[in-house]
Design a binder for these strands. Structure first.
Length: 297
DNA sequence: ATGACGTCCTGCCTGC
DNA sequence: TGCAGGCAGGACGTCA
């Protein structure tokens, strides 16, 4: 599932590949992915739009578009949230027997191609495809002000790697939360971009039990947490994300953080620090992985 | 306001 | 072997 490091990897790659290009057509077989506007209007509006800039907001991808008319230029933003199993792929496919097949056999794997549900055709012959096994992904096309005012954008908490988001502010946020620290880290309105994988990894790094209540953490623990948040996320970006079974970059290649991950989906395996057996519990309906010896309750 | 739960969707795993 | 049932999972919506 794409979280901050995976989305950052995708945005950085896409910037190099598609900025300056024009969208010439669009195809979908899963209308429910496009939440706004209707597909008919989506198609009408996006055809002919030029890709100007790409940004990450939390786990959301914002693609800034302009469309020139005779008398004016209209600005739009295409918002994409990949949710659990969404992939943004850049390449060339052709329809064969009702399935999209990559024209060049490369790192793009069979399984990713099987779930292509939305394609933006670009004016250099390439395509930007959204593959999504679960069809949970969300796509919205609207004006910049509409997008900025969406609850899921406007109410995002600070970005963990934003230089202005200093320790004092982080501490204030954590101290004001009485929920379990794992839940707080994953709440996009508190801090944006962290999900299940990295909250587990960060808590292991900081040696904090996921069930601990945020407002009961000692200052020293919050300091460790702040440091761990930076080191884990920065390392994961360097390794181009975590691919347990699903994540792929725009060329279809997996990230390498999974190889060095400490706890996520390592239930029953040994802790890399102390050798104890990694445990899995449920917190707020989500699974949390931790070392019962390193991360004391 | 807050927290618990339902919803979307489908591959995969379990148990009979 | 086959099939039904349960599970996973981000974030919004609903309900108490």
């Amino acid at each position: 599932m794409p979280e901050l490091p995976e989305v950052q990897t995708i945005v950085d790659d896409l910037k190099k590949k598609i900025i300056g290009l024009q969208i010439v057509d669009v195809w979908t077989d899963a209308y429910q992915l496009i939440k706004k506007p209707s597909f008919e209007n989506f198609k009408k509006q996006i055809k002919g739009a030029k890709i100007e800039e790409i940004e990450r907001r939390g786990k959301n991808i914002l693609i800034f578009l302009t469309k020139s008319y005779k008398l004016n230029t209209k600005k739009m933003i295409l918002l994409i949230h990949q949710k659990l199993t969404g992939h943004l792929l850049c390449g060339q496919w052709q329809m064969e027997n009702g399935k999209w097949q990559p024209i060049e056999k490369g790192p793009l794997e069979e399984t990713v191609n099987n779930y292509i549900h939305l394609i933006l055709f670009l004016n250099n012959g390439k395509m930007l495809a959204l593959s999504d096994l679960r069809k949970f992904a969300k796509v919205i096309l609207s004006s910049p002000s509409d997008i900025e005012n969406l609850k899921e954008i406007k109410e995002l908490g600070p970005d963990p790697l934003d230089k202005n988001f200093n320790f004092e502010e982080f501490k204030k946020l954590i101290k004001s939360e009485k929920r379990k620290i794992k839940e707080v880290l994953m709440d996009q309105s508190v801090i944006s971009g962290i999900g299940n994988i990295y909250s587990d990894e960060i808590l292991w790094q900081a040696k904090i039990h996921p069930l601990k209540l945020a407002n009961q953490l000692a200052d020293l623990e919050i300091k460790k947490l702040y440091k761990a948040m930076h080191s884990v996320l920065e390392k994961a970006i360097k390794m181009r994300g975590t691919s347990i079974s699903d994540f792929r970059d725009p060329e279809g290649k997996p990230g390498k953080y999974a190889e060095i991950r400490a706890v996520y989906q390592r239930e029953g395996e040994k802790c890399r620090r102390c050798g104890a057996i990694i445990k899995r519990i449920k917190i707020g309906g989500r699974s949390a992985h931790f070392c019962p010896k390193c991360q004391r309750a």
